[in-house]
Design a protein around this nucleic acid. Structure first.
Length: 113
DNA sequence: ACACTGACCACTG
DNA sequence: CCAGTGGCCAGTG
């Protein structure tokens, strides 16, 4: 929303990182925030996802909390959209919990170095 | 212009 | 070990 002002901020960075998440991989809000250098902004990362809803190129379904739980699934078109998308990419999700989360975990500060 | 909220994470007691 | 609070940025009431 807002006007078309140059309100670019770490939202842009968040989008960029999320877009770089490989298929079948997932990451956490905190990891992205930490990669950007701001641990506290983890909340904002989630809020960024809300805005990301306007950007189809941002696979928000690949972003979960540090626990590997689909916290934001309720924000998708349907509560099952997130899980379905993840399963389509080969990620096993049970009870909103990603199985073998450590195997699917994709850390930008490590993968992007 | 002020205050509160929000898909979180980590530290301190 | 469990519980509580702080911190960060932006948007909305």
């Amino acid at each position: 929303m807002s006007q078309n002002k140059d309100r670019y901020s770490f939202f842009e960075d968040v989008y960029a990182v999320v877009k770089l998440i490989p298929k079948g991989r997932v990451t956490s809000y905190g990891s992205i925030a930490h990669y950007l250098g701001t641990r506290g902004s983890a909340r904002m990362v989630g809020w960024a996802m809300n805005q990301a809803h306007t950007d189809p190129d941002v696979p928000a379904h690949r972003v979960v909390n540090r626990n590997g739980v689909l916290t934001g699934k309720h924000h998708f078109a349907t509560p099952t959209t997130m899980q379905s998308l993840l399963q389509q990419e080969g990620v096993v999700v049970t009870e909103d919990q990603i199985q073998n989360f450590d195997q699917h975990f994709w850390d930008p500060s490590v993968e992007l170095t």
